[in-house]
Design a protein around this nucleic acid. Sequence first.
DNA 1: ATGTAC
Length: 467
Amino acid sequence: MASQLRGNDLRQLGFPEGRAIGLALAQLQRKHLKRLSQTEQLVLLRALLDAPTNFLTHLDWSHTAAALLPAPSRHITLAERKDYAVFGAEHIEPGAIHQMETAMKLPVTVAGALMPDAHHGYGLPIGGVLATDNAVIPYAVGVDIGCRMALSVFALPPKHLEQRVQELRKLLLDNTRFGGRDVFRRGQHLDHAVLSRSEFQDIPFLRNKLDTAASQIGSSGGGNHFVEWGVVDITDPTNEMGVPVGQYLGLLSHSGSRGMGAAIANHYTKLAKDVCQLPGEAQHLAWLGLDTEAGQEYWAAMNLAGDYASACHHQIHHRLAKALGEKPLTKVENHHNFAWKEFLADGREVVVHRKGATPAGAGVLGIIPGSMTAPGFIVRGRGEALSLSSASHGAGRAMSRTRAKAELGEADLRRYLRQHQVELLGGGLDEAPQAYKDIRQVMQSQTELVDVLGSFTPRIVRMEGAV
DNA sequence: ATGTAC
């Protein structure tokens, strides 16, 4: 069998230094191209090099072709800014509004909206919702692809939290793992069907990501990610969970797609910036056409990352429910940092990006967390067209991470937690509850977007960091 | 958010 082509072979053929070489080599690893003889591969690469424009819509070679073209042919100019709705403008910093206005000038943008917890992000602001025509923007999805909330409601009274506090604390410490290094040991992993998905073989970029995914499964991230016990208070008797009005023990988790999702986000953002060069501040909003190979690959990888994030939450809840010896009465799960194919009110099919925004289609359930010391809310979407069927994904930050670390002290945090009867295991000053906005005010700005069915008040919170 | 860097 002939040896594989290497980077230097491509250089000899005339490939320029840069991303084209890596992209072409990755393509040649795919099953149907790997079968070709080395001569056939070289003929193909020469044709690609001679006339890259002929390959721009080719399913296999569109992004290699784009990387071979001189930069000016990939430049894109902005269009006139389209209108968009802002909810809770009084809570939103000017930087986030400015970023949203830039996104509304993209030629692929159809509609947009800004949620009341919005703040400055990278590319699209956190809390930004953007509908595009046949294009997906990796940085309008976000780095932590498919990050989500999951709630289990147990048929146990809240006084469990006082009577069995030591046991619940231990269950949390024993059954969760947070951040980069602290994962479950080899023999402790639970298997999950998501690890057998064909995308890990079919998409060249994902081939070496299976190890990371397998080692991190069932774990939680760092930063604002948490797993917590608390009090569920169901207030709406017509809730579609079928849970009677009353108070229950609940388990709430917030986490995403870990290292694998971050790798996908970073890789396809670079790819998008290669094939779609935007002026100045819009440059991070580079998109991939959904009918290009790169766009289809990203779409498949994004969906895999979303399912992986879901699998992690399922394992977290499964471990804890089993250790508690209970089956949940009901579960609610919803994701943000994702893109969906949806229809607008006028019937147009669009790609809706929700970067830190909760899906709130008519009758869709979700959880909008407050902070460690403030309730989160179980909500039912109202399908409001102006918000593109979306709501906030939390209270939003009132203080940046750096400001929180500079201005708050460890003693302040501990006193604040004691006042609110919250026990924090791990965590840091940058995630102190004082650094977040008042969730009740944020909810007041989105009464048109969601109905409140109940609340969740944290009591024992586990985050990244030593206990 | 992230084996926090190709």
